[in-house]
Amino acid sequence: MTRRTHTHPDLAHPEIGAPFFSTWRVGTPLRQRQTVDAIATTWQRRPWPADSLLGYHVYTGHDASTLLHYSQWRSEAAFEAFTKTHRQERVDEIDTAVPGIERLRLGRYRHYRSLSRPDDTRVPGCIVIVDIEFEGPDADRQRAWVDAVVEALEAEPNPNAGGIAAHFHRSTDGTRVLNYAEWESAQAHIEALAAPGDGIGSATELWHRVQTWPGLKGSTVSRYDHALGLVPS
């Protein structure tokens, strides 16, 4: 069966072979809450769809309009099988409860590396999604850019105490990197952005290299709250 959980997902779980991120636009805070409730009801009234799905999590955007979806699959083949047999009935029930949902994008990724402290037991109060887009596919560039970010973070002279962890994912088409960053609170992230420097880093050569990387097309930063976790019971 399907069980609801308030526990945040483990982004670095070794059995995750195919993480998926998608965004829905629903329009208002009320519709955000209604859609989360509809997802929970729709899923909990049905058996867990596949052993290959480790968890499914939904987040409400601080823009008061969007929802972020994160699902942890063992393989893309398992996800494709789910879409053929179980997905549409769930979509139809959710759309009946909350008409007019706009599904913006489904991103296929692979977890590349994470940066965290094993002794840090804080529960994230805010999830920050940094979506990086490059000019064309290049898997080596994806890896090199993430490695450069990690190097800059580890050498940061003024680390922000509100940061908990960063989990970097490479899109399977080679064009994007997604950083799922766990923060103590939204205010901690806001204060980090307001500090000297461009973004959360200080004005160092390492951060300058990250920000001016060849082929870097653009980036967006979005804040979310964990609203729903679904796992097999």
Score class of each variant (00 low, 15 high):
109 Y>F: 08
107 G>P: 02
131 D>M: 08
103 R>Y: 09
97 A>R: 11
99 P>V: 07
122 R>F: 01
123 V>C: 08
127 I>E: 12
122 R>A: 07
102 E>G: 08
104 L>G: 01
105 R>D: 05
126 C>N: 13
110 R>C: 00
130 V>H: 10
100 G>V: 01
123 V>W: 03
111 H>R: 08
113 R>A: 02
103 R>Q: 08
118 P>S: 01
120 D>L: 04
123 V>P: 05
95 D>W: 15
95 D>T: 15
127 I>Y: 12
117 R>E: 15
130 V>F: 07
100 G>K: 02
95 D>S: 14
100 G>D: 05
128 V>A: 13
112 Y>D: 01
123 V>F: 02
97 A>D: 10
108 R>A: 07
96 T>V: 13
121 T>K: 11
107 G>T: 14
132 I>F: 04
119 D>K: 13
112 Y>V: 03
125 G>A: 08
110 R>K: 00
114 S>D: 04
131 D>Y: 09
125 G>C: 09
97 A>H: 07
119 D>M: 14
95 D>K: 08
129 I>G: 13
96 T>L: 11
121 T>R: 13
119 D>E: 11
116 S>D: 12
129 I>A: 14
115 L>R: 12
99 P>Y: 08
120 D>R: 04
129 I>E: 11
98 V>S: 03
113 R>G: 02
96 T>I: 12
131 D>N: 11
121 T>I: 08
110 R>G: 01
123 V>K: 06
110 R>N: 01
106 L>Q: 00
108 R>E: 04
98 V>D: 07
128 V>G: 09
116 S>P: 02
125 G>P: 12
118 P>F: 00
99 P>G: 04
127 I>F: 10
105 R>V: 07
112 Y>P: 04
109 Y>I: 00
109 Y>S: 00
